[in-house]
Design a protein around this nucleic acid. Structure first.
Lengths: 166, 166
DNA sequence: TGGTGTTTGTTACAATATAACATTTCAATT
DNA sequence: AATTGAAATGTTATATTGTAACAAACACCA
């Protein structure tokens, strides 16, 4: 499945979750870091769908599993998952989303649908190349970048044009 | 002055402030909206330098001028200035910076220096074209975009390489 | 000059995030 | 098994960022 709407179109999402968790687990083992229960649970909650999730929503959702959970519990897990590259922070939403390309260190471009709220991560090499050019022109050394586009995704655009069933 | 580091290199900043305020004033007149004292003062405070400014810093700084100022005072002014396109919100800093191209509706690319904290706005047509291409590929309709790059600006890179005077 | 929409004042609170220190866990050694 | 040292978590408190809701003041125009 490599079409242009792979993560916004209907799909078997349990595959997404499973892939994210097993890959994260492998990478942690390789790196000698611990994917503890809390960290794994937070990652799983983030992957519950393709929305960006707020920290305090995660806190509420993890409480049945971790009754002692406090804000620091969540933010620490989020820090860890970000350091490992397993999730992205969506700066313009103060929220977090699973990274769907754990193997490569691509800088991400996030397409955020206002309607269904799904966030699609894309790699857009041409955009990144143009950006690199721009950095050279500006004499700027880039360390980290956030590219967040808000709009309407392909799936929502299509469904908006399909007449409602009577 | 149109070199690649026009807003991070030393410059006569009073020109920046004056231009921003007079242009904003003109545009408000044209548009039939009010650039009230509070709004103008907030805009002026934002333009005090090329840093991104936090809302509560603005609040402290405006209090000598507006003793009744409260958070809502600042956020309302910021909302207005954003609607008019006079400032940008820097999503990754929860802060605000003056827009230096009020005439055109270009989407902005913000280069944020970690060292001097200056924010340089650039227009990078090639980046925007590549982005537009990407939207077509993804079937995505973009409404608003935040492109924020953190790193080290040209001026800081240069001064980092110049030996200190004894 | 009266009415209407805009702007501001004011109070309260919601939402997001971090600091600081105590305690526990757990794996790697002795 | 006991030791121990680093990592992870628990816990309390607080800092930071942002809104809601309603009242009062103001500006503009019929």
């Amino acid at each position: 499945m490599t079409d242009s709407t792979e993560h916004t179109a209907p799909h078997n999402h349990s595959v997404c979750i499973h892939t994210a968790l097993t890959t994260a687990s492998q990478l942690c083992a390789e790196r000698g870091v611990q994917l503890t229960a809390i960290r794994q649970q937070v990652l799983e909650l983030i992957w519950a769908n393709h929305h960006a999730v707020k920290a305090y929503d995660l806190l509420e959702r993890i409480k049945p599993l971790q009754s002692a959970a406090k804000p620091a519990t969540i933010y620490r897990a989020l820090d860890f998952l970000r350091e490992q590259g397993f999730i992205h922070r969506v700066e313009s939403l103060n929220a977090f989303v699973g990274c769907n390309d754990l193997k490569s260190a691509h800088e991400q471009l996030l397409l955020i649908c206002k309607q269904c709220e799904n966030v699609e991560e894309r790699h857009a090499d041409s955009v990144m190349q143009a950006l690199t050019q721009e950095f050279v022109l500006a004499g700027f050394t880039a360390h980290h970048q956030a590219i967040e586009i808000h709009g309407i995704c392909a799936t929502c655009t299509q469904s908006n044009h399909i007449p409602q069933l009577a």
